[in-house]
């Protein structure tokens, strides 16, 4: 019941949030200098007739509320319009690229979780030991490297020199391995640090000492106490990281020539391709909202205190 209520309340808030988000994005694009004319006119001087036709076609001379309403009324019926620059329906542009971004994000999420959580726990349990110090150092290094630099190093080492992976573009899963690693290493380091901190905190609790005193096996302590209790902060940060993968992989996409949503967003903002930007921003909004919702639902499931409304 708690879960259903939570989801219902969140859904209503989500709709309002998306509406505000769409208005803000539209307004910011309208306020920023320049317009889509440059992309529409191409590389040559345009005739006045062409400019007039373009302005009329894309309602560029209409006041802002009229343009926004025109967009909104179509968007509400599921019609997100046609890209101004490449003249392809926005929905099909997005659906072509969603696969790329989702594959990359999932793979990066696997890497992040598979590296971040065990490394963090291992460091947290052996606090101050050699393993802890090494893990902390390595995570600091990965945290400091920008993803595009990691991308170029991986590209040079594993794709050019060793030829284990393809250099560019999309295709089978091998195309996504290097980009996913480049994308995941920094956030995995963040996750390691958070997991370590959570494990440290939980490790100092009396119930762990008591469990040890009761003679429970190390595995038993991990399973029943440590993992579950350190899961809350880790879930929060993991949810945000993965939502970030779905929307913010621009530099890595660029380095590996992956046609994902991130590079599309940057390109569309530069070209003032408003229909594409709007759809992408809304999609990002939905992703972040859903990720947060899933995290909250997971909280409820993981933590009985929240489930029973006591926390």
């Amino acid at each position: 019941m708690v879960v259903v209520k939570l989801v219902a309340r969140r859904l209503i808030a989500a709709v309002l949030l998306l509406l505000v988000l769409s208005l803000l994005t539209y307004a910011l694009l309208a306020l920023s200098p320049g317009g889509p004319e440059r992309a529409l006119l191409g590389d040559r001087p345009a005739t006045p007739e062409t400019i007039a036709a373009i302005r009329a076609q894309f309602l560029l001379d209409e006041p802002f509320p009229v343009r926004y309403w025109h967009w909104l009324s179509q968007a509400l019926t599921g019609d997100f319009g046609t890209s101004i620059t490449v003249r392809q329906p926005v929905i099909s542009m997005l659906s072509e690229r969603v696969n790329v971004t989702v594959t990359l994000a999932l793979l990066a999420a696997v890497v992040t979780l598979a590296v971040g959580i065990p490394a963090g726990l291992a460091a947290g349990i052996r606090r101050g030991g050699r393993l802890d110090r090494s893990i902390t150092l390595v995570s600091l290094v990965f945290l400091s490297f920008p993803p595009f630099a990691i991308a170029l190093v991986l590209l040079y080492g594993f794709a050019i020199q060793l030829r284990w992976f393809p250099v560019y573009g999309t295709g089978d899963l091998s195309h996504y391995v290097l980009p996913a690693i480049a994308l995941a290493l920094g956030p995995a380091a963040v996750l390691t640090r958070h997991t370590r901190a959570a494990a440290l905190q939980v490790g100092e609790q009396d119930y762990i000492t008591f469990a040890r005193a009761r003679g429970l096996s190390r595995f038993g302590i991990w399973e029943s106490y440590l993992l579950r209790n350190s899961a809350l902060p880790v879930l929060t940060i993991a949810g945000l990281i993965i939502a970030g993968y779905l929307t913010g992989a621009v530099f890595v996409e660029q380095a590996f020539s992956l046609p994902g949503l991130g590079s599309l967003l940057v390109q569309s903002v530069t070209q003032k391709d408003i229909p594409v930007v709007q759809a992408l921003v809304l999609l990002s909004g939905v992703v972040v909202i859903v990720a947060n919702l899933l995290v909250d639902v997971a909280y409820v499931i993981v933590n009985p205190q929240i489930r029973q409304g006591r926390a």
């Binding site: 794709a159 250099v167 560019y168 020539s257």
Partner: peptide
């Protein structure tokens, strides 16, 4: 015909023979 937007990635792709 493929698009490789990053100039250095383009050079690496040509150099490795994949383009």
């Amino acid at each position: 015909v493929v698009a490789i937007t990053d100039p250095e990635a383009m050079r690496l792709a040509i150099s490795s023979g994949s383009v």
